[in-house]
């Protein structure tokens, strides 16, 4: 859908430009290029979090219906071991889900995959769905204790957020999407968010991957090198739980095994919108209740 819009908006543009390229005269091309640079039509989309939808086909959030599974092997189906079932109830861990869509094919009466990205959360428990209802064990006591501190943190970082990205063993998919945040379409910079080279300059540690064993020390050292207040955001299923790579000899099974995680961004990989949502949620610029769709 979006693509079509883009195509429509650029058709006129493109046909005009082809003539310029084909004209052959290099000087002419030069001036055309120059005028093209000058004509700085902004490509950035207005509200990437709410005002922007993915394609219909996009595999994003999963809705869980109250139905009794008729398949015994439902939990064996999932490559990321996100589904657990005791024969009557289904427990889906969105923190593990890699959005492959196999469960919907196997049991369309229970799983429905939507085209909206899965919402990032502050508490790991909030990613667990139990037959359509949010797990009631969501509220943890320590959340209340740290609340004051977190409010102070988000107050300081509200308008300016410097990010240090660390790949702790991801497949590079999340990196592709994080890089996309910088492009003209999403343009994360306009939210006062920018990527920095040194952890000394950073406020957010954006971590991807299942925290591979070989990266564990480096990840800790990066966190230690950051000045307070600092926020850790786990991006992608691997970072939330180990994802498809799970908890093995080579991984630790999620960033929260190594560092205190403040925000979990589910998805494999999460879309740029989802990552942006997570970052804005971290500094309370988005209210957690305002889940779109």
């Amino acid at each position: 859908m979006i693509c079509e819009e883009i195509i429509m908006s650029h058709k006129k543009d493109a046909s005009g430009l082809r003539n310029s390229v084909d004209s052959g005269d290099s000087k002419h091309v030069q001036t055309k290029i120059m005028s093209d640079i000058m004509r700085d039509d902004v490509e950035t989309i207005k509200d990437p979090v709410n005002g922007y939808t993915n394609s219909q086909e996009f595999r994003g959030s999963i809705t869980l219906f109250d139905a009794i599974p008729h398949q015994d092997s439902l939990d064996k189906l999932c490559a990321a071991k996100a589904i657990e079932t005791d024969g009557r109830n289904v427990r889906l861990d969105l923190g593990k889900c890699i959005m492959c869509g196999r469960c919907q094919q196997a049991a369309p009466d229970i799983f429905l995959i939507g085209s909206i990205f899965e919402t990032p959360v502050k508490v790991r428990q909030d990613l667990i769905r139990l037959s359509g209802k949010l797990d009631s064990q969501g509220q943890k006591p320590y959340e209340q204790m740290g609340k004051e501190l977190k409010e102070k943190t988000s107050k300081i970082l509200r308008r300016s957020l410097a990010i240090r990205e660390v790949d702790a063993g991801s497949c590079n998919g999340c990196e592709v999407e994080i890089t996309a945040l910088n492009n003209a379409i999403y343009d994360i910079e306009r939210f006062g968010v920018h990527f920095v080279a040194s952890p000394r300059h950073a406020d957010v540690l954006l971590v991807t991957g299942p925290a591979s064993r070989n990266m564990e020390i480096a990840l800790r050292r990066t966190f230690e090198a950051m000045p307070d207040p600092r926020i850790v955001v786990a991006v992608g299923a691997c970072a939330c739980s180990g994802g498809i790579f799970g908890d093995t000899y080579a991984t630790t099974g999620g960033i929260d095994k190594v560092l205190p995680v403040d925000i979990y961004v589910p998805g494999c990989p999460p879309t740029p919108q989802a990552i942006l949502y997570g970052l804005l949620l971290a500094v309370d610029r988005i209210e957690a209740s305002k889940i779109n769709g």
């Binding site: 000394r200 990266m215 480096a218 990840l219």
Partner: peptide, 8 residues
């Protein structure tokens, strides 16, 4: 310690 890119 000085930033060592995590290598130590």
């Amino acid at each position: 310690s000085t930033w060592d890119c995590g290598f130590g």
